[in-house]
Amino acid sequence: MTLRIEVDAEKCMGGGNCEFWAPKTFEMGDDNISHVIDPDGDPEEKIVLAAQGCPTQAIAVWRGEERIA
C-alpha cells in the first residue's frame, strides 16, 4: 500500500537527513525544503527511519488511517 507522506514546510530546516535515509523518496529542493518525489521510492522501513531521523519532526507518515511515523 502506498504510504501517505507529509512534510511540514514550516518545520523543515533543510538538513537533508530524510534524503540520506530515503533518497528515492525525498529530495531537498532549491527552496531549502524537503519534497516527496515518490512515496514508493524506498522500502517502508527506510521511509519510517527518514521520518524518525528528521531533526525537526517535520515528516508524518500514514499507512491508510494509521500514522506509523
Binding site: G14, G15, G16, E19, E27, N32
Partner: peptide, 12 residues
C-alpha cells in the same frame, strides 16, 4: 544564516 550556507552541504 543556515539557509544561506547549507545549500552546498546537501547530500546531492
Amino acid at each position: 544564516l543556515r539557509s544561506l550556507v547549507q545549500f552546498p552541504f546537501r547530500p546531492k
